[in-house]
């Protein structure tokens, strides 16, 4: 059975707003998904190592939010069906957390676009497919939603704006200087 974003969002809308899971319990909820798919979940030490070397400021709240989404929607059940043994669970989780790096729990909760991105990244990392959507369309949609790329675009646009504003400021200063010099000459 394929994943359905509208159905998952509907279920999420009916769930409590905040994740009730502390970090350890959230990790257990995530591991349980792999266990249900007859796969050995990552060891606790693997999570500790991940946090130490590749974790970031938002990682813990993302873990908590993921556990909340898995427990309160059909995402867990559908993930169990989609998982195969082509990749290790930790490799899948590493890909997921890397791709959602800038997303806060608040964004996933309240922002329609970031919520969709969060769900789609999870589905892709778990090797799932989306209902009524070709793989190419799913890929294109994720590229449109990619908030990491958007942040890079924002930074580039900001730098370009600043450079242009500085250039114009310099032109104005030069024009003012030339005018002042010309006035002095006439006097």
């Amino acid at each position: 059975m394929a994943f359905s974003i509208p159905r998952l969002r509907e279920q999420l809308a009916a769930a409590p707003l905040a994740s009730p899971y502390p970090h350890e319990l959230a990790v257990a909820v995530i591991c349980d998904v792999f266990r249900a798919a007859n796969q050995r979940p990552p060891r606790r030490e693997a999570f500790v190592q991940f946090e130490r070397h590749r974790g970031h400021a938002l990682w813990r709240e993302q873990v908590s939010m993921l556990a909340h989404v898995l427990a309160s929607t059909s995402l867990r059940e559908e993930t169990v069906k989609a998982l195969d043994t082509t990749r290790t669970p930790m490799a899948r989780l590493e890909q997921f957390f890397q791709e959602i790096e800038p997303l806060t729990a608040e964004m996933v909760r309240a922002n329609a676009f970031r919520q969709e991105e969060f769900l789609r990244v999870w589905i892709r990392a778990m090797g799932g497919a989306l209902e009524n959507e070709t793989p190419a369309a799913s890929k294109q949609r994720l590229e449109q939603l990619d908030y990491r790329k958007a942040m890079a675009d924002f930074r580039a646009a900001e730098a370009a704006r600043k450079k242009e504003a500085d250039r114009r400021e310099q032109l104005l200063q030069e024009a003012a200087r030339r005018e002042a010099e010309a006035r002095g000459w006439r006097e």
Partner: peptide
């Protein structure tokens, strides 16, 4: 993207202009 106000506002809201793909997206 080119408007300093809109770019900052969207970034603060966790959005970006690329999120706007259809008229139904506007309500968000």
């Amino acid at each position: 993207h080119a408007s300093p106000f809109h770019a900052r506002r969207l970034r603060d809201a966790g959005m970006h202009p690329g999120d706007l793909r259809g008229l139904d997206d506007l309500r968000h």
